[in-house]
Design a protein around this nucleic acid. Structure first.
Length: 354
DNA sequence: AATCATGGCAACCGCTCCTCC
DNA sequence: GGGAGGAGCGGTTGCCATGAT
């Protein structure tokens, strides 16, 4: 659109930052806050473009950054969230306190991607690379519906990340009177309400009263800013009904723009499959949802990779035959999603912000 | 010891999104 | 409503460190 890049001015320095530059930037932000990034370099006496300064600050100088090796927990979190979100590094980063999106992205590209590949998992789709099996056993249709689910959740998380950004902006303004280390603003007012659907899944799944309560809670105070989930208490007893209700609501809401593009028939398809899931498995839709997702994504291969012992609870008995094996398998599914939910629940009301 | 290959990470680039006028 | 500018995001590049030959 004819807009000139911010860094094309001659005389602006590029490349690695020197300790002196770091010091200048740090000192300026500590005293004044970053304010307008574009104006910052001149005020701070730096021969850099604002963009470069922002990057340096957010990826390196910020005091609340945790550096060093990623823990196994963090690795799992990244893998799980990547399965849901794809390459939305900033959204993933909102669930990993003290890690920057750039760091997560780099870690994914240099470590996790390769590791998943080695384990026979497509790092993009999180499915086993030999996907042919799916198309022959009738699961492919279900899998595509899962993909719709994932898209929906993904879109929602994106919206939530946007909200986080907005609130960050707002609090940056507010905190501009007391510069720096604004106990940052990135953090939304409470724990991120992402993955509401997964919470719901979880509740349905375990069928525990507590979880049921948490689901009903979604209708009220648990509501995410962007969430349009609406669960009735009767939905607990009729899981798929609850799910259908949620689908209907979402399609008429803020995410409608995205979802509608898929067409009404797609959603009808989901409803039909929702029903078919129930009848074919004797379980509920959500159970089948996770079941399928995991059978398509990593469980088998994670088990294969258990020798690396990096995957703790993700590694289980895998696809072993027999009732007990399938029970373990379901347990693994629960663990997998529980770990996502736990991470969301426990994630930072004090999450780092800059 | 020298050279080459590979891995890891910081930084850049280009694009999109959002806000303001 | 539309354009301009600022900010943020994701992909990519380039440099440096380390390991292999």
């Amino acid at each position: 659109m004819g807009r000139s890049p911010c860094c094309d001015k001659v005389g602006l320095k590029k490349g690695p930052w020197t300790p002196e530059e770091d010091q200048k930037l740090l000192a300026y932000i500590e005293e004044h806050g970053h304010g307008s990034w574009r104006a910052l370099p001149a005020k701070a006496g730096l021969q850099r473009c604002g963009k470069s300064c922002r990057l340096r600050w957010t990826n390196y100088l910020r005091p609340d950054i945790k550096r060093g090796k990623f823990s196994i927990q963090e690795e799992q979190t990244i893998i799980q969230l990547h399965a849901l979100l794809g390459n939305r590094w900033s959204a993933i980063a909102t669930h990993l306190p003290q890690r920057t999106d750039n760091e997560i992205k780099n870690y994914w590209n240099t470590h996790l991607q390769k590791r998943l590949s080695r384990m026979g998992i497509d790092p993009v789709t999180h499915k086993p690379k030999s996907d042919a099996i799916l198309s022959t056993d009738g699961h492919s249709k279900n899998a595509s519906n899962l993909s719709h689910m994932a898209q929906w959740e993904s879109a929602r998380l994106e919206a939530e990340a946007r909200l986080v950004r907005q609130s960050k902006l707002r609090s940056t303004e507010i905190s501009s009177s007391s510069p720096l280390l604004h106990k940052p603003a990135l953090a939304p007012p409470g724990p991120p309400r992402c993955l509401d659907i997964l919470k719901a899944c979880n509740g349905v799944w375990t069928n525990k009263p507590n979880n049921a309560a948490s689901i009903t809670g979604l209708t009220g105070d648990l509501e995410s800013p962007t969430s349009t989930l609406s669960y009735s208490s009767t939905g607990i007893g009729d899981n798929s009904a609850a799910f259908i209700e949620f689908v209907g609501n979402s399609s008429g809401s803020c995410e409608a723009g995205i979802l509608k593009e898929e067409g009404e028939e797609d959603w009808k398809g989901i409803d039909e499959n929702t029903m078919s899931f129930r009848s074919s498995s004797g379980g509920n839709f959500l159970e089948r949802f996770t079941d399928l997702l995991l059978s398509n994504s990593g469980n088998r291969s994670f088990s294969e990779g258990c020798g690396e012992s990096d995957y703790g609870d993700i590694c289980g008995s895998g696809t072993g035959a027999g009732a007990s094996a399938s029970h373990d398998y379901l347990e693994d599914n629960k663990n997998y999603w529980n770990s996502i939910l736990n991470l969301v629940d426990s994630s930072p009301s004090d999450s780092p912000v800059f």
